[in-house]
Design a protein around this nucleic acid. Sequence first.
DNA 1: ATCTTTAGCTATGTCCAATAGCTTTTAAGA
DNA 2: TCTTAAAAGCTATTGGACATAGCTAAAGAT
Lengths: 185, 185
Amino acid sequence: MPRAGLTPSRVVDAAIELVDKHGLPALTLAAVAEHCGVAAPSLYKHVSNIADLRTLVGIRVMEEMTDSFTATVLGRSGTDAITSLMRAYRAYVTAHPARYAAVPVNPLHQQEYAASGRRMLGVMQAALRPWQLDENELIHTIRAARVIVHGFASLEAAGGFGLPHDLDETYERLIRLFLATLPPL
Amino acid sequence: MPRAGLTPSRVVDAAIELVDKHGLPALTLAAVAEHCGVAAPSLYKHVSNIADLRTLVGIRVMEEMTDSFTATVLGRSGTDAITSLMRAYRAYVTAHPARYAAVPVNPLHQQEYAASGRRMLGVMQAALRPWQLDENELIHTIRAARVIVHGFASLEAAGGFGLPHDLDETYERLIRLFLATLPPL
DNA sequence: ATCTTTAGCTATGTCCAATAGCTTTTAAGA
DNA sequence: TCTTAAAAGCTATTGGACATAGCTAAAGAT
């Protein structure tokens, strides 16, 4: 009975591979266990239950997204930073469409996701800092950005648009649309 | 053994009540059967399987949405029609948040939903008719509208926004944002 | 009144999540 | 090096959901 050397993190790795390959609904403990070369109940040594695993996957994905956003915003500012951030959002989702379904839509309201959610929010707030928006304006502005990036990304990830034809153009228009709501610097 | 008098439509009625009460994940054949006062396997006389039931629920919801959109757009035109259509979209989703999760994001690409999807799309196209947009422009315009209404509605339905505080204002801003992309009439 | 259709039923199989309880690896410490 | 305790794996089992097979009785048609 040699050990497989699992850890929660390696279980999440396997889970994400499964999600990438077969979609979020294919994320079952049985499938993860087989992928890890282990019997299903063994996973409970590393993960509390299937809900916990889904949460860990969601957090992992959010962290990956935030890492990517941080990298792209660093060294940019103003509209350049906002544009690259919005492009990076879409880029992550097109690169890993199935993963995006694992991200909860209300992370700030769920204890387990709150930290990741705040971290992601922080990048957007930082990118908007040059505008020095007051609190009320900042809320509406961030909401608008979120509606656009999430709306577009969730539709694209799920194949919600007809032809891929000109999807870049549609997204660039939406970015310009959003930038137009910001006061000139 | 008196009969329950089920039909596919009445099964969908029960399914939608369940979804409204306990959310989409609570839509199981066992729960629907109990709600109908019938044993679970009896449902297979009216519905092919759980996937079929989910599809029927999704179609029902899309039809309801389109009915509401049609009613609100009739007798209006121009920006007034667009505004009322976008408000109606949100209004349906806030009135029945759980149902919205049953609507597929890519209806035009799934045979079973295609008719409902085209009908809904038709309302939007009709509302945009006064602008006489060329085909390319029409595609981008409809996509932008969809991103905004779906993005906002899916976030709101899932509790994705923080405080409900000022959500009306956020949405009205997005409507104005979209209208601003349309050429003046 | 009879016959056919079909809407219901029970029984059963499969799959997944989850728990209980056992065994063996592994690593820490005497 | 030997002992021992923690923990990582296992098998067995339960419960719930979907699904099918095959039976029975209600309801409509002739």
